[in-house]
């Protein structure tokens, strides 16, 4: 099973990275979303194969059975799924707001929106001490 999972992870990560490198924020959102699934499957693989060496499956992680599946990856994934949900909601809202404010979801166009610029205030410098003379001091 681990092998199958590893192949799934490979495909999912490849597709999601491919999507994340595209120009459309919508595709990027889908890529991020898919990457979450891929990461969850990768964590799931850490619990080892559920197929026992002599055939048959392990039991769910509820006390009372024999050969329980490792519960820890499941707890981690459960957390991850819910966080994924929150991130997705946030991301999608961000998309809406971005589209409204800029009229585009193209990351290349967005990059050109507000280039970081040096502030003229910071670039200026204090005058040398001679400035002390020219200034009419209040005291």
């Amino acid at each position: 099973m681990t092998t199958v999972l590893a192949i799934c992870v490979t495909v999912m990560v490849t597709v999601s990275v491919y999507l994340m490198l595209s120009r459309e924020l919508k595709s990027i959102a889908m890529g991020v979303f898919l990457l979450g699934h891929g990461a969850n499957l990768a964590i799931l693989a850490m619990s080892g194969s559920p197929v026992l060496p002599w055939g048959g499956l392990r039991q769910p992680p509820i006390l009372g059975g024999e050969h329980l599946v490792d519960a820890l990856p499941q707890a981690l994934i459960l957390t991850a799924i819910v966080i994924n949900f929150a991130v997705m909601g946030f991301f999608l809202t961000l998309l809406i707001v971005t589209a409204r404010k800029t009229g585009t979801l193209n990351v290349d166009e967005l990059a050109g929106e507000e280039p970081p610029r040096s502030s003229p205030e910071l670039a200026s410098e204090p005058a040398p001490v001679a400035g002390l003379e020219t200034r009419s001091v209040a005291d």
């Binding site: 681990t2 092998t3 999972l5 590893a6 192949i7 992870v9 490979t10 495909v11 999912m12 990560v13 490849t14 597709v15 990275v17 891929g38 499957l41 990768a42 693989a45 850490m46 080892g48 194969s49």
Partner: peptide
């Protein structure tokens, strides 16, 4: 990236 992550998953799993 995908193959690397998948390979790591395989090794760890």
């Amino acid at each position: 990236v995908g193959i690397t992550i998948g390979w790591m998953t395989l090794l760890a799993g």
